[in-house]
Design a binder for these strands. Structure first.
Lengths: 125, 125
DNA sequence: AGGGGCCGTTTACGGTTGTAATCCGAGTGT
DNA sequence: ACACTCGGATTACAACCGTAAACGGCCCCT
C-alpha cells in the first residue's frame, strides 16, 4: 500500500480509531483533547489532514461525520517499524531486539511468550 | 540531557560520526553524499543544523572544521526508542518485541544471544 | 597580483507539522 | 423569521525538514 507519513500527533488519533471506529470528531476530541491539551480545532485539523492523506475516511452520519481508518494498523506499524529499525539500529533487528530486551521491564509471562516466539523463529530457520 | 529532535536524514550523519570521529565535511560527503544522492551543500546544511542543535561540535583543524558528536549515541537511541515505543506500540515493550521477533530474520547465533538476554531479564525479576 | 578552488555561511523555497482562530451553512429554540 | 450554536472547511503561521544555490574569504598556482 502506498505509505503515507503519519506524524507523531496523528498516530494518537489513528491509534484511537483503530481501537474503536467509527467515531465522530466530538468523540475523538473527548478522548484525546484534554489528555493532550488540544483545542477543538486542532483535532479537527488532524482529522482533516488524515482524510486528505487517505488514511482516514468519513461517512456522513446525519448532520455530522464519522471517521474510520482506511488503512490497516498492521501496515502502518510495519512501515514505521522498518523506518525506525533502519534509522536507529542500522537495519539490524538483532541489535534493536537486544536493546529493547535490555531496557524493558518484562513480566514473567511476557518473557515466556517471547521465548516461545524465539522457539518458533528457530524452527523456521 | 536535553533531547533535541534528530531528523531522518540527520540520523545518517550522526550514525556516521558516532562510528568514526572526528570527520571533515568532505569526509562526511564522501561517505554519504553519493549513497543518498545528496549535493555537497545539502550535507553542509545538515552539519550546520546539527551543530546548531547542539548535537555536533566542530574544531578548527587548520583551514577547515572537523566535526564530532556532542551527545552519546546511546542517549539518542534511548530517546528515539522511547518515542517510537510510545507512538507505535502504546508504550508496551512486550508488544514491540513480539512484533520484531516475528517479523525479523534472525541467525541461530542471534537467537542464542537474545535467549541469553532473556535469561538475565528473568533473573532480575 | 589575478584567477581558481575550497570551505564555511547565508539565503531560498516548498512541504510537513503542531497548534489554532475564523468563516460559513444548516438546524434549533423562541 | 431570527439569533444562536454546532460542525465541517478555510486560512494562519511559525518551526522544522529536505534539498540546494549563492556569497564571501583565504590559499595556491601561474
Amino acid at each position: 500500500m502506498a505509505t503515507v507519513q503519519i506524524s507523531e500527533a496523528e498516530w494518537q488519533v489513528m491509534n484511537l480509531l483503530w481501537h474503536q471506529q467509527p467515531l465522530t470528531a466530538q468523540e475523538v476530541i473527548a478522548a484525546l483533547g484534554e489528555k493532550n491539551g488540544w483545542a477543538v480545532s486542532t483535532v479537527k485539523t488532524m482529522l482533516h489532514r488524515l482524510v486528505k492523506k487517505g488514511v482516514l475516511r468519513f461517512d456522513q452520519q446525519g448532520t455530522r461525520y464519522v471517521y474510520s481508518p482506511r488503512v490497516r494498523r498492521a501496515d502502518c506499524v510495519r512501515d514505521e517499524s522498518r523506518s525506525f529499525l533502519k534509522r536507529v539500529f542500522a537495519g539490524e533487528p538483532a541489535t534493536l531486539l537486544a536493546h529493547f530486551l535490555k531496557t524493558s521491564r518484562l513480566s514473567a509471562d511476557e518473557i515466556a511468550d517471547l521465548r516461545r516466539i524465539l522457539d518458533q523463529q528457530e524452527e523456521r530457520s
